[in-house]
Amino acid sequence: MYEEQIEDPENPLRCPIKLYDFYLFKCPQSVKGRSDAYYMTPEPVVAPNSPMWYSSQPLSSKQVEQMLARIIVVREIQEIIGTSPESLS
């Protein structure tokens, strides 16, 4: 089930729409509007002011699976120790 995402102009660092726009801003023009790939491979070395943070090469499904597994582990650890990302902000 999908939940509609709404913009949070009060807190752009937590706003999924602003974060997605920023992600697209740091992707090469050639990948914008593609429907066959969502997560692009990060460039190996970038500075905060670099124009591109991602390559035009999509992440493999195995890489996405590993990334999601790490996110789940971090969340489980946060729940065990009694912290959550919301309580840290």
Rank of each mutant, 00 (worst) to 15 (best):
Q66S: 12
W53L: 06
K26I: 01
L88G: 12
Y39T: 05
V31Y: 03
N11L: 02
F25E: 05
S35K: 13
K18P: 00
K26E: 00
S87Q: 01
P28W: 08
S55A: 05
E43R: 00
K26R: 15
T83W: 07
I77V: 14
P16Y: 00
E10Q: 14
K62M: 06
S60Q: 04
G82K: 06
T41V: 12
S60M: 04
S30W: 01
T41R: 05
E10C: 04
M52P: 01
W53C: 09
V73S: 13
V46I: 14
I72N: 07
G33Y: 04
E7M: 10
E43F: 04
Q57S: 13
I6W: 10
L24H: 04
V74G: 06
S55N: 01
M67E: 03
E65C: 07
P85N: 10
P16T: 00
P58A: 07
P9V: 02
P42K: 03
F22Y: 12
P12W: 08
I80T: 09
V64L: 03
K62A: 12
P44E: 08
A69M: 00
M67G: 12
G82I: 03
Y38K: 07
V64P: 01
Q57R: 14
T83K: 14
K18T: 15
Q57D: 13
R14Y: 06
P44S: 09
Q66A: 10
D21W: 11
L19G: 05
R70Q: 11
T83E: 08
P9T: 05
E79D: 15
V64A: 02
V73P: 04
Y39R: 02
M52G: 09
S35Q: 13
P51V: 03
R70P: 13
V73I: 01
W53S: 01
L88E: 12
E76W: 04
V74L: 14
S87A: 14
Q29H: 06
S84T: 12
V74T: 07
K26T: 02
Q66G: 09
F25K: 14
M67A: 11
P58R: 02
E76Q: 15
Q63C: 02
I6N: 08
P85M: 04
C27F: 03
C27P: 00
E10K: 05
G82R: 13
A69G: 10
Q29C: 08
P48D: 05
V45A: 07
K18L: 11
R70H: 11
P85A: 06
R70M: 13
P48W: 00
L68I: 01
P51D: 03
R34Q: 14
S60N: 00
I72S: 11
E65A: 10
Q63I: 02
C27R: 01
P48T: 02
S56Q: 04
N49I: 05
E79C: 08
I81V: 14
R34K: 15
Q57T: 02
V73R: 11
L19H: 03
R34L: 09
T41H: 07
Q78S: 09
G33R: 08
D36A: 07
Q57N: 11
Y54D: 06
I17E: 10
I80K: 07
